[in-house]
């Protein structure tokens, strides 16, 4: 096996896979996409100059792969509509909750669903910052953003999540609220 692949697999495979999974919310698709990440990495590995860390470089590629897959999923009609209305740039899907999530408690399931309400950018930040526990700097490097953009996007994303959590939990009644209050 390729030594580059070997090393990358050992160091980052599960992280990249998980990142892709939370972005596309589908295990099979994430499996496909992680392969795509390797293909792009292996093709351009010589060009990796070490300016950024290996990890953020790898994640920036993974992010591009994820965004490309969203573009492919969406039809051209949606894409054109999106050009006129930036606020609708959300990727919705009605896929059933994967097993890994379904076995978790209700709040986890809730927040997993609420992720759908965020824009792609917001979701990128949420996944990187809180699920993968990237620093602001790492997130900014991976996304090619400034740190302040990361901060504002993260702030907006949390606000949306908060609102969504409150609405859905409100709808589903007291039970889930109790759980929260037990804490």
């Amino acid at each position: 096996m390729d030594s580059v692949f070997d090393e990358l697999y050992r160091k980052y495979h599960h992280d990249v896979f998980q990142f892709l999974f939370y972005m596309v919310k589908n295990k099979e698709q994430a499996e496909d996409l992680v392969q795509e990440v390797y293909i792009r990495v292996l093709k351009s590995y010589e060009r990796f100059e070490g300016k950024s860390s290996e990890k953020t470089w790898l994640f920036s590629i993974a992010r591009n792969v994820a965004i490309d897959s969203f573009r492919k999923q969406k039809g051209w009609k949606q894409r054109i509509l999106e050009k006129f209305d930036w606020s609708t740039s959300q990727v919705k899907d009605d896929q059933p909750i994967p097993e890994d999530i379904a076995v978790q408690n209700e709040e986890i399931q809730q927040i997993y669903k609420c992720l759908d309400q965020c824009t792609v950018d917001q979701r990128l930040v949420i996944v990187m910052r809180y699920i993968h526990e990237f620093s602001i700097l790492e997130t900014a490097e991976s996304l090619g953003w400034t740190e302040s953009k990361v901060k504002t996007t993260q702030h907006r994303a949390l606000k949306i999540l908060k609102k969504q959590m409150e609405e859905t939990i409100g709808k589903e009644g007291m039970e889930s609220e109790k759980i929260r209050m037990e804490r």
Partner: peptide
């Protein structure tokens, strides 16, 4: 119900690890 940022962050960090 009121969710603080901290609570949300904690909840997110509890998201299950997904493995290939």
């Amino acid at each position: 119900s009121e969710w603080s940022d901290e609570q949300l962050k904690e909840l997110l960090s509890q998201m299950p690890k997904i493995k290939d």
